[in-house]
């Protein structure tokens, strides 16, 4: 081991020891990071990895690299990734907007009441895969079908008896976990192709 001695300038055993102990923290946290399943936990542990790597860069005298790691690697990239993970790990479900009842109950309450059993089934399953449901309302069936064909949403509820899902993987998950809910897979590209040829 000659490089730490050159860097530190003093040749004592304990200095070598703490240098090596600190450097060993980096692979340790990196191992923790790749072993995480939950994406949000992985983000926070990425922050820990950033803090420790900044420490090691400072330890080896690279003050500018340490500052960049703390500012860009920890602060900026974590924030951006949190926003990206939050918006990408969601299932966009299109539903029909209901007309108000005769008794005058508002749209929101009625919709929520009708969708409650579906969401109560769907939410625990999707939470297991670290996803969430995002509801989008459409005024009529034509608009809902159009949104599905234009890939604005991942699935629809209310067009037929079952859920219509256009993502194969999502369909597989729902089919496996909730067979009673019933979901049909729709290959949007193929449907479009058929429409063109007809």
């Amino acid at each position: 081991m000659c490089w730490p001695i050159v860097l530190v300038g003093k040749d004592s055993m304990t200095e070598d020891f703490y240098l090596i102990a600190m450097t060993a923290l980096l692979p340790l946290t990196a191992g923790l990071l790749v072993s995480q399943i939950n994406p949000y936990h992985a983000l926070v542990i990425r922050g820990i990895l950033g803090a420790i790597s900044a420490l090691i860069y400072a330890l080896f005298g690279a003050a500018d690299v340490a500052l960049t790691e703390a500012l860009v690697g920890t602060m900026l990239s974590i924030t951006l990734y949190a926003v990206a993970v939050r918006s990408s790990m969601s299932m966009r479900l299109g539903v029909l907007e209901e007309t108000p009842d005769a008794d005058g109950s508002s749209i929101g309450i009625k919709k929520r009441r009708e969708l409650a059993p579906l969401l109560a089934n769907l939410n625990p399953v999707l939470t297991k895969y670290h996803m969430r449901v995002e509801l989008l309302t459409y005024p009529d069936q034509a608009a809902l079908t159009n949104a599905l064909m234009e890939k604005e949403i991942h699935g629809t509820h209310g067009l037929s008896e079952s859920l219509q899902i256009r993502i194969q993987r999502l369909h597989d998950i729902i089919q496996a976990e909730l067979p009673t809910l019933g979901s049909t897979y729709i290959d949007v590209d193929r449907v479009k192709q058929q429409d063109k040829t007809v």
Partner: peptide
Amino acid sequence: MIGMVGVLILSLGNASLMLLAHILRRM
């Protein structure tokens, strides 16, 4: 120089933590 970087990391690391906490809370 290293001391300067330490002080900056001390104050900015806390700021990034607050940002992340608010995003997680919204989620």
